[in-house]
Simulated scan of single mutants.
Amino acid sequence: MKALTLALIATTALGTALYNPTSASAGEVANRLERQQERIYKGVQQGQISPAEYQNLQRREASINAQRQNALSDGHLSAQEYRQLNRRENRVSRSIYRDRHD
């Protein structure tokens, strides 16, 4: 199982390094934000996310969305902008998971 996980991570990292994001990737970022919002709302509805945690997650999501809008002001995401947004979304995703499972 561990070897499979490492292989998947290596494949994903290689694919990400070779992939040159374009404006299509902006849709991926937006779709991910929507899915994360759904996870947050489900956590609140199920009582797994406290009001303070909710406020923090919403603030962070809004910041990512503002960064995405700013990055798209020239019409496309550069590779660096895409990596930066993806990294921030990964961090928020982990926070959502932790908040829902604490």
Results as ranks from 00 to 15, higher is better:
37 Q>V: 01
48 Q>F: 04
36 Q>F: 00
64 I>Q: 08
74 D>I: 02
36 Q>A: 08
53 E>H: 05
48 Q>V: 02
77 L>D: 05
68 R>H: 14
69 Q>L: 10
52 A>N: 07
32 R>W: 00
57 L>F: 12
53 E>Q: 15
58 Q>V: 15
47 G>P: 08
69 Q>M: 09
58 Q>I: 14
42 K>V: 08
51 P>M: 03
73 S>L: 07
45 Q>H: 07
48 Q>T: 04
65 N>T: 11
44 V>P: 02
40 I>N: 04
38 E>T: 14
35 R>P: 01
61 E>T: 06
50 S>G: 11
76 H>F: 00
51 P>Q: 09
50 S>Y: 13
64 I>Y: 06
43 G>N: 04
34 E>V: 02
46 Q>C: 03
44 V>Q: 05
40 I>S: 00
73 S>W: 04
35 R>N: 05
55 Q>V: 01
49 I>L: 11
39 R>C: 07
42 K>H: 02
71 A>P: 03
68 R>L: 15
77 L>W: 05
53 E>F: 08
50 S>C: 14
59 R>L: 15
62 A>R: 08
47 G>D: 13
70 N>Q: 14
38 E>R: 13
34 E>M: 00
75 G>S: 09
56 N>I: 13
75 G>T: 08
45 Q>F: 03
39 R>V: 07
41 Y>K: 10
74 D>C: 05
62 A>Y: 04
44 V>F: 03
56 N>D: 14
46 Q>W: 01
60 R>P: 01
70 N>S: 04
37 Q>D: 00
